[in-house]
Simulated scan of single mutants.
Amino acid sequence: MYFCISKDFHFSASHRLDGLDASHPCARLHGHNYVVALELAAGSNGLDGVGFVRDYGDLAEFSQWLDSELDHRHLNDVVDTHPSAENISRWIFERGISRYPELHAVRVSETPKTWAEYRK
């Protein structure tokens, strides 16, 4: 048993997905208004003295990092892997786990109805 908290963040960026048929819309240069959800977890005895998994205010640093690294950028030039939503979620997770050891999952949405997730 464990507790989870999550918080959503937003950024806008372009990308192109190689390896698709030329007629596929994602093969062309295009952009998204991304939503990134961080999920942090703590065991039932792992809450801090206030009763938090982590103070939401501590995530302001992540928001600043996301804005400086990904917002209004071309992801093919930034992410060191093929910039699918699945790979972006893992890329963000790998960069966030050292700062947020409670990080349990990163979800990335490119559209209001689609999500990709990388989970511990």
Rank of each mutant, 00 (worst) to 15 (best):
58 D>A: 14
53 V>H: 08
90 R>W: 02
77 D>T: 09
106 V>H: 01
79 V>W: 10
69 E>K: 05
45 N>I: 04
72 H>Q: 06
99 R>W: 02
65 W>A: 09
68 S>T: 12
56 Y>R: 05
94 E>G: 10
94 E>C: 11
63 S>Q: 14
77 D>C: 14
55 D>C: 08
81 T>D: 15
96 G>Y: 02
91 W>I: 07
82 H>R: 14
106 V>T: 10
70 L>Y: 10
62 F>M: 05
83 P>M: 03
61 E>Y: 01
78 V>E: 07
79 V>E: 08
58 D>G: 03
94 E>I: 03
75 L>Q: 06
81 T>P: 01
57 G>R: 12
99 R>P: 07
61 E>K: 10
85 A>S: 15
74 H>I: 07
75 L>T: 06
51 G>H: 06
84 S>H: 01
73 R>Q: 15
102 E>I: 07
59 L>T: 02
69 E>W: 10
66 L>T: 07
87 N>V: 00
92 I>Q: 09
79 V>L: 06
45 N>E: 15
81 T>C: 13
85 A>H: 09
51 G>S: 09
93 F>M: 02
81 T>M: 13
96 G>N: 11
71 D>F: 15
66 L>C: 11
48 D>F: 06
79 V>S: 09
79 V>T: 07
46 G>W: 02
70 L>M: 04
86 E>R: 12
95 R>W: 02
66 L>G: 12
64 Q>T: 11
52 F>K: 12
98 S>E: 13
93 F>C: 04
76 N>M: 09
103 L>H: 08
60 A>L: 10
72 H>L: 08
92 I>V: 15
99 R>N: 11
83 P>Q: 06
67 D>H: 13
85 A>Q: 02
56 Y>A: 06
